[in-house]
Design a protein around this nucleic acid. Structure first.
Length: 563
RNA sequence: UGGGGUGUAGCCAAGCGGUAAGGCACGGGACUUUGACUCCCGCAUUCGCAGGUUCAAAUCCUGCCAUCCCAGCCA
């Protein structure tokens, strides 16, 4: 699979980050002449979701547009929160989206030795000191948003002493929390990040990459700019909440002897309505069993979207068309759905499925006869392949495609009306059979042999076309219909408990649906369009040849409004 | 009298002193062997508000308002 062929959208991408990057590497720019180099730096502590997809697309996409490179780097500076188990899943998701980092897969922990040495450099330059304040004391002396902090009593400790202590911290002589290494910047800064931030802490914890080699770990604000620069990253693209960390990022870049003056540029993260995006909330849903794992098709996780039937192309298209800006925004999930439909409409093979079957008997069609029609996978596209469907006297149709007493503008089956059975014949409804409760159990119709293939006679206008299955060849399937996980647009902003906001109808399981038999063997990676219903895909966990399970990716638009 | 951002249609979003792109959503119509797709048409006399500069302002200046982020030894 060539990633580019798989997800290339053809969109003209243009946004402020691209403009800035172009200026930076162009004539007179601050990074003049350097090859554009970005990175995607996930923390291995959870699964990727569509918000990360935005970052991935910006990071990899920017490099791609400038003919540069994008690295994948695990931001693993906090061993107690991270786990190797997430790494493989993260890599799979990025690959699935269509991006690749070649051999440039790194860990921030690869640089622990170098980061340690840069910390020593800062101490030597009198720009960092070993502090003995307790966490409580640090908090108290940091000041508040509106009042300055007070300097640590250890701030002017001789460099040699700090250097010695820092070495002993590394050697494991002290318990967690006993000492920290702090940057010496400005306790009265309006920017809290500059009030002598802690850049190293003692943590006697086993790290998933470095094992027990270290018991001190650098903080994100220190490790990140160093890792970036060491990898010759020209542009460190991140989300808005790091904007006021940028002065600290720059401080590290400027005060350590680093090879490249990486520039950090921030953009607004993606938010979508009717769902939640934070790792913490997603985790809660999974752990409370409110959804079927991290890959539940209702979740915005990439594995969930994949299981739902979303295509990488649709996700990339969605992001590119949304644009990149600094406006904190909430995108309408209907736009995401639109992008999926648009992609699948062009590519997904068509099939017929009946979700709520009722019998249709063609009373003038012989009991012992069966014929086969060959239909194109994509109607009108002869290069799309074909599949066969059978037709006989006993068919199955959708229960709501028959009305004994139809509303105005209803042009499906009702007594006396002419309707086309898609790809087969035009039939005239002659009535129905009901059980003792008055429920329709069978619809009756007569077919017109002259309309084979569904072709209307000259001058004949048939308004309604419905889907159907041959009862004798249709196979049973479970179909899972999904809807938004939450009933409110912004569950995060709602003061009610989120349990109350969950949509009780976010999952509807239909046990007794029927589909065309060829779907037992076929496994289109795009899924299928079940005509007149929507796009569906084999569930990647539960669907087998013995028990078919389909997930509804998205419904077709429907302008029919019964009056 | 903390710092840093952001305000253009219901939702995204172009615009960078010359008279408001585009997409989604929505409404109407055409076409249709999917009530889908496709195709037309409509949808901001106005850019958070108020002043000012200018022949000309969403774009420049001043003030105000709203809203988001920051006080982890998390990232």
């Amino acid at each position: 699979m060539t990633p580019k062929e798989e997800t290339y959208t053809g969109n003209e991408v243009s946004h402020f980050i691209l403009d800035e990057v172009e200026k930076d590497v162009g004539p007179g720019g601050r990074l003049e002449g350097l090859p554009v180099h970005t990175r995607f730096p996930p923390e291995p502590n959870g699964y990727l979701h569509i918000g990360h997809a935005k970052a991935i697309i910006i990071d990899f996409g920017t490099a791609e547009l400038f003919g540069g490179l994008c690295n994948l780097r695990m931001d693993d500076t906090n061993p107690v929160k991270e786990d190797e188990a997430y790494v493989k899943a993260i890599q799979d998701d990025i690959h699935w989206l269509g991006y690749d980092w070649d051999d440039r897969f790194y860990h921030a922990s690869d640089y622990f030795e170098q980061i340690y040495n840069y910390a020593r450099e800062l101490i030597e330059k009198d720009l960092a000191f070993v502090c003995e304040q307790t966490p409580e004391e640090v908090r108290e002396s940091r000041g508040t948003l509106t009042s300055p902090g007070t300097e640590s009593p250890w701030r002017y400790r001789p460099r040699q002493e700090s250097l010695d202590l820092f070495g002993r911290m590394r050697a494991g002589e002290f318990p967690d929390g006993r000492y920290t290494l702090r940057a010496k910047i400005d306790m009265s800064s309006g920017n809290m990040n500059l009030r002598d931030p802690v850049i190293y802490r003692i943590q006697h914890a086993r790290h998933h990459q470095t094992g027990d080699e270290w018991c001190i770990y650098p903080m994100y604000d220190f490790a990140h700019p160093i890792s970036d620069s060491l990898e010759h990253i020209t542009h460190s693209l991140c989300s808005l909440e790091f904007e006021d960390h940028r002065p600290l990022f720059d401080w590290v870049i400027n005060n350590c002897s680093l090879p490249v003056k990486t520039r950090q540029i921030e953009f607004a993260r993606l938010d979508i309505n009717y769902t939640v995006m934070s790792k913490r909330k997603l985790r809660t849903l999974v752990e409370e069993g409110l959804v079927d794992g991290w890959d539940d098709p209702r979740l915005p996780t990439l594995c969930g979207l994949r299981r739902r039937g979303y295509t990488p192309r649709a996700i990339r298209d969605f992001n590119e068309r949304n644009g990149v800006s600094k406006v904190p925004s909430m995108v309408d999930i209907r736009f995401l759905e639109h992008c999926l439909r648009e992609d699948l409409n062009k590519r997904a093979p068509r099939a017929m499925a009946v979700l709520d079957p009722v019998k249709l008997t063609i009373t003038n069609y012989p009991e012992d006869r069966q014929e086969t029609f060959t239909v194109e996978n994509l109607p009108g596209d002869s290069s799309s392949g074909t599949h066969d469907i059978t037709f006989s006297r006993h068919l199955l149709i959708e229960r709501d495609d028959f009305e004994e007493d139809p509303p105005k503008k209803y042009y499906r089956l009702f007594p006396g009306n002419l309707v086309r059975l898609r790809g087969a014949y035009i039939v005239r409804c002659t009535g129905c059979v009901k059980d003792s409760q008055g429920k329709v159990i069978e619809v009756l119709a007569e077919y017109d042999p002259e309309t084979r293939g569904g072709t209307a006679a000259a001058g004949q206008k048939v308004r309604g076309t419905i889907h159907w299955l041959d009862e004798s060849t249709a196979v049973q399937a479970e179909v899972r219909l999904y809807d938004h996980l939450f009933t409110v647009e912004a569950p995060d902003d709602d003061e009610r408990d989120y349990h109350e906001l969950l949509n009780p109808e976010s999952l509807t399981v239909i046990q007794n649906a029927r589909v065309e038999p060829w779907l037992k063997e076929d496994r289109s990676y795009l899924g299928y369009q079940f005509m007149r219903l929507g796009y569906f895909i084999h569930d990647n966990r539960d669907s087998t040849e013995d028990k078919l399970v389909f997930n509804r990716s998205v419904q077709l638009k429907d302008s029919y409004r019964p009056t």
